[in-house]
Design a protein around this nucleic acid. Structure first.
Lengths: 227, 227
DNA sequence: ATATACATCTCGAGA
DNA sequence: TCTCGAGGTGTATAT
């Protein structure tokens, strides 16, 4: 990783055109060929003001560098950095291996709910995860106590988009006479008020579920024995 | 801006939980209180492996630092950095003023199409930009040669979501008898194949528009005189 | 402060 | 290679 603190101006042309006037910024060039330009807050906070994702071709002219050109290996994007003054220029070997371990993403929620389908609705029994439709898989397909079908869409955050997505699935599922009666349930850790309203008008039920409670709860089968 | 190259491990708890095992990484602490941790490619390229957006409270323990704790000023997010070895630690004053000038974002596209509505469809005349509905404004409302209404949704990239959004607007617009016959047109620089298919089934027309051609074309009025 | 929509979104999985 | 969907999305704007 090469870090250059420099007074520079930056022009990007590609998906759109941008220009960043002369000023002091950090140029970060990673081993994978990605490049990013950071100011000290101001406009951008965590996002770089300019960047290019790999694969790239990087052309550094001069030592100390006075011009850096970054091009995408495929496509016509170009980042042109004109350097007035280099204040610092260091290289370090940083870690490239260890992966970030995540816990609590949508996948985890889906696994927990697949093991405890009754948390999505009274008496729900899981028929299958990732139930296929011709526009993609529904997260959970269950049956209610009366044997009616229920499609469950799982999200961390329940939005209007999630409701629309489930509505699209339901359209397809109901085309099959075998599942023509299928209901829809949106299960999420948090459900936005507007999503709730739209779900209501689309006849879709909403359930908020807590990761902690799911983790704490025993499996339904075990609860039977412990009761 | 403070840049620390360090062998460290990072634990984040908040919206979810993550853990990053010991390894050499760049810690970037900006003047605005934002913090980001970059590896040298690998998993993340342009995105930091961990980060926190301002406003934050940053607690740096030791000199050289052996532990850094970052907390959100509001909420319960926490980033805990345990440092084994500091390889470099420098501070610089980077630019915080100058704004990035952009050209070619959706706003620009909307302005150009508002001035040249016929690019969205033969003989379209603009009635108004940002036509209000009770769920948000439609980008352009036009009339066709036969005086029928057309709602135009403008995107840089035409996706399924864009089609659904326009479909929601059309639902509302058609509730008003005055505009019950309203058609829909999705105008974008690029339209995804799946979006095209969904648009077809929703009775929504698709138009791909080029920023360059829009810029190059004269206004319809001027073309009349030049012809 | 909250809600909404854009983004050079980025990034990974799957076909 | 392309397409689709998730993201600790981030970020700005309007309410």
């Amino acid at each position: 990783m090469r870090l250059i603190m420099a007074r520079c101006e930056v022009a990007y042309t590609g998906r759109l055109s941008t220009f960043l006037p002369m000023g002091v910024r950090l140029l970060m060039i990673k081993a994978d060929g990605s490049v990013q330009i950071h100011s000290d807050g101001g406009g951008s906070k965590v996002k770089p003001q300019n960047w290019m994702t790999p694969p790239t071709v990087i052309d550094i002219e001069g030592d100390p560098p006075h011009r850096i050109e970054v091009r995408k290996r495929k496509g016509s994007e170009r980042l042109e950095i004109t350097i007035d003054e280099v204040l610092a220029d260091v290289s370090h070997d940083a870690d490239v291996e260890s992966a970030l371990e995540k816990d609590g993403v949508e996948r985890d929620l889906q696994e927990l709910l697949a093991a405890r389908p009754a948390q999505c609705g009274e008496g729900f029994r899981l028929v299958r995860r990732e139930w296929p439709t011709d526009i993609g898989p529904v997260d959970l397909m269950c049956r209610e106590p009366g044997d009616g079908w229920v499609a469950v869409e799982i999200k961390r955050l329940g939005t209007i988009e999630a409701v629309e997505q489930l509505a699209r699935y339901l359209e397809r599922i109901r085309l099959d006479p075998a599942t023509a009666d299928c209901r829809g349930v949106l299960a999420a850790q948090v459900i936005k008020p507007q999503a709730r309203v739209l779900a209501q008008s689309r006849g879709i039920a909403c359930v908020e579920v807590s990761l902690e409670e799911l983790r704490g709860s025993r499996e339904p089968d075990l609860q039977l024995f412990s009761a």
